[in-house]
Computed example of a mutant assay.
Amino acid sequence: MKTIAMEHAAAVLTIDLGAIVANWKLLSDRVAPSRCGAVVKADAYGLGAVPVVRALLQAGCREFFVALVDEGVRLRESLKQEWPLDARVHVLHGPLPGAEAACLEHGLVPVLNSRDQIERWQTLARRHGTSLPAAIQGDTGMTRLGLPLLEFTRLFETKDRLAGIRPTLVISHLVSAEDPGDPINQLQLQRFHSLRTLFPSTVFGCLANSSGIFLGGAFHFDLARPGAALYGVAPTTGQPNPMRPVVRVQARLIQWHDIDEGEAVGYNHTWHAVRPTRIATVSIGYADGYLRSASNRALLRFDGMALPLVGRVSMDTVTVDVTKIASDRLVPGTLFDVIDEIQDVNVLAQQAGTNAYEILTSLGARYHRHYLGHT
């Protein structure tokens, strides 16, 4: 399918693969000598799993995590000709009933979260007359996925509870790692230690997510699995962000006009001019993942100048107060920065009253996507 050239696209999403690799290397250095994987679920947080994984493979990453079997199948199929023998894709949700064969066929390693998933994986192993690799997840406090602690311990009361399964990881998920002062972190660490001791040393322990890496070496175990930090999201609340920005979002001016004091803008007239005002209409909206909650709160940037978004975010457009910009500079097609190095995804998330994860994964399919670095 033909797509319009970048210079004519209404909105442009630029993704810096070099910055993603640099972020992965920074995190790898931080957890060394432990290994560092990469969470690439939700199409690498909306940025494109295939180019992101390709770049990380070339940088040396070998452990990847997706949420769904379908995500893992698409990834392995897309990179079939270049997939290293020592690289693995773990499926965090495990297989839903009937998806076990697809896991095996495509070389995916399920994260088994329940007795039901364990038993179905054992059934497949018996059918094939072999033991099959899998990660085992214990719930240390999230109450979301994984075996409760007592049920996890009972797996090891008899020798055949994991018959047919070759464990690759014992895994759990931190509740509040972005807040180092939350006591739940230490409680989960203690609980995870009790799970880890049930497995031989050849089975990797995997607890730290992006924020967990910054809780210190005690949380690193054998393998860390950063996700959001790879894509520029700040890993620790209230601290300087050590990660390089990864995305830039730009949208084009459609038209502008001058309005008088007292005139209103946008749906339901939630904003009224308190002075004569120049209003620009810019081609981005909630259909592009620019959240409606940013209405009357966010900023766009033009040639370095911060400009307030006024009125409601519409499906396809926003309106911006550009009174500070001379009219001869407001040429239709001119690009405004929505996310850039100064107003990054973390800043926009604060303006929109959400987190940076939602901003990234909401970025829609209408952008012209431009990758910096090899794809």
Score class of each variant (00 low, 15 high):
P240T: 10
R301N: 10
L187K: 14
P332T: 04
D16A: 14
N346F: 02
V331Q: 06
P97G: 06
V265D: 04
G37R: 00
R196L: 11
E358S: 11
R115F: 15
H257V: 09
D43W: 02
Y231Q: 09
Y290A: 05
T334W: 08
A38I: 01
A55Y: 01
T323Y: 14
I339A: 01
A349F: 12
G48I: 09
A163Y: 15
G60W: 01
G138N: 07
A365C: 13
I254W: 06
V249C: 03
L155R: 02
V111M: 07
Q239K: 15
Q122K: 02
A294Q: 07
V247H: 05
K25R: 15
I20R: 03
F221V: 05
L145H: 07
A229G: 08
L56V: 05
L17H: 01
A38M: 04
Q239I: 10
E157V: 12
R30C: 04
G141Y: 06
T158A: 13
S295G: 05
V53I: 13
F64P: 05
E341P: 07
L307D: 14
G48K: 13
G164Y: 04
G311M: 02
A264N: 10
V322T: 06
G285F: 00
V320T: 12
D303R: 14
H93V: 12
R275A: 15
G217P: 15
G333V: 02
W83Q: 03
K159C: 06
L195N: 03
K41F: 02
D86P: 03
H269M: 11
A22E: 14
T14W: 00
F65D: 03
Q137D: 11
E358G: 03
A49E: 04
R62L: 00
T277P: 09
T143I: 11
K25T: 15
G227W: 08
I213Y: 05
H220G: 04
N355V: 12
V40N: 00
F192C: 10
S176E: 10
L363P: 08
N209K: 03
N355Q: 12
V318I: 11
V345R: 06
D86L: 08
L291S: 04
D160C: 06
V53E: 00
G60R: 05
L330V: 04
Y231L: 10
C36G: 10
A356Y: 04
A134Y: 10
V89I: 10
S201N: 12
R329K: 13
S295K: 13
W256Y: 15
V310T: 15
A229Y: 06
V91Y: 02
D182R: 02
L189V: 07
P84I: 13
L309V: 15
V233M: 12
R275D: 09
V50H: 00
W121S: 03
A273R: 06
N113E: 13
S131D: 10
H8C: 02
A32Y: 11
P180V: 01
V53Y: 00
A280K: 00
